[in-house]
C-alpha cells in the first residue's frame, strides 16, 4: 500500500451550497501533504469526510486502505485528528488530558505515555496545571500531543497554526517535521503559503470545489516563468525582527 489517502470524485453539498465539486488527490505514505485554500473553500469539509465525521454525497475515499463509508471503525483505528480549534479539556490538567486519551486508545501504560509526551512537547513543568491556564501555543502543543497518543500512522492537522504567534508557529512546524521524520504521514490544511512551503512534500490547492493543482513545490515553481537574477537590498521582515529580538532576550 503506497498511498495513505486516495480520494476520487469527492462531492459534498450543504443544502444549496455545492462545496466540493469532484475532488481528486492522493497522499503518499510517509509524506507531508498540504491542502491550501482560502477560508470557506472546503478544507475542513474534506478533513471531516476523511476522518469519518461527515459523510460525502458521492465519490470514493480510501484512508489507510479502508473505505471511510464502509469501514469507518478501521479508519478511526488508524488515524488521529487535531481539529481546527484546540480540542483540549480546559478543566483537566495537561497530564489528565493525555491520560484520558491514552485510556481511550487503550494503550498499555497510560501514565507513562502521558509523561513521555509531556516531556517531548515541553509541557512537563505545566503538566499539573489546568489547560485553561495555558497560552495558545501550549494549548496547541497539548492538542497535537493528544493526537499522537497511540502512534497512528496518519495524522490530520486542520489549520494547526491559525491564531498562533510566530514562535509557537515555528515550534509546531518543528513538531510536524519531526513526525514526518519518524515515518508518520501528515495531512495538513493551511491558509498560509509559507507554511506549505516550509513543510510539505506535496501541495494541493483547493479552489471553487476542485483541486486545481497538486504537485511538489519544485514542480509548482516550474509553472511560473524562470527565476530572474536581480540585486535587491533585502529588508528584514517584521517577523524576522521580532524573532531576532526575542531570541536575544532569551540568550540574556
Amino acid at each position: 500500500m503506497e498511498n495513505s489517502i486516495q480520494v476520487k470524485g469527492l462531492q459534498k453539498s450543504y443544502r444549496q451550497l455545492h462545496v466540493l465539486k469532484g475532488v481528486d488527490f492522493e497522499v503518499k505514505k510517509g509524506s507531508i501533504f498540504a491542502l491550501l485554500g482560502s477560508n470557506g473553500s472546503g478544507k475542513t469539509t474534506i478533513v471531516k469526510i476523511l476522518t469519518t465525521l461527515l459523510k460525502q454525497d458521492s465519490g470514493n475515499v480510501i484512508v489507510n486502505g479502508f473505505d471511510v463509508v464502509a469501514q469507518p471503525g478501521n479508519v478511526r483505528q488508524s488515524i488521529s485528528l487535531t481539529g481546527q480549534f484546540a480540542a483540549v479539556d480546559e478543566i483537566l490538567t495537561g497530564r489528565e488530558n493525555l491520560v484520558m486519551i491514552a485510556k481511550l486508545r487503550h494503550v498499555k501504560d497510560p501514565l507513562q505515555v502521558a509523561d513521555d509526551l509531556l516531556k517531548r512537547f515541553g509541557l512537563a513543568d505545566a503538566a499539573n496545571r489546568r489547560a485553561s491556564t495555558y497560552s495558545g501555543g501550549m494549548r496547541r502543543r497539548l492538542d497535537i500531543a493528544m493526537s499522537l497518543v497511540g502512534e497512528s500512522p496518519l495524522v490530520f492537522l486542520d489549520e494547526p497554526t491559525t491564531g498562533l504567534d510566530p514562535e509557537a508557529r515555528i515550534e509546531v512546524w518543528r513538531i510536524v517535521k519531526e513526525l514526518a521524520g519518524n515515518g508518520t504521514t501528515v495531512f495538513l490544511t493551511t491558509q498560509y503559503l509559507e507554511e506549505a512551503e516550509q513543510l510539505a512534500d506535496r501541495i494541493a490547492i483547493l479552489h471553487e470545489g476542485r483541486i486545481i493543482v497538486s504537485d511538489t513545490l519544485a514542480a509548482l515553481k516550474k509553472l511560473f516563468p524562470p527565476a530572474k537574477v536581480e540585486y535587491i537590498e533585502k529588508q528584514p521582515t517584521l517577523e524576522e525582527i521580532f524573532l531576532a529580538i526575542i531570541g536575544k532576550k532569551n540568550e540574556n
Binding site: 465525521l53 478511526r76 480540542a87 490530520f156
Partner: peptide, 8 residues
C-alpha cells in the same frame, strides 16, 4: 469531534 474520530 475528537472522540468521534477515535476508535470509540
Amino acid at each position: 469531534e475528537r472522540f468521534n474520530s477515535m476508535p470509540i
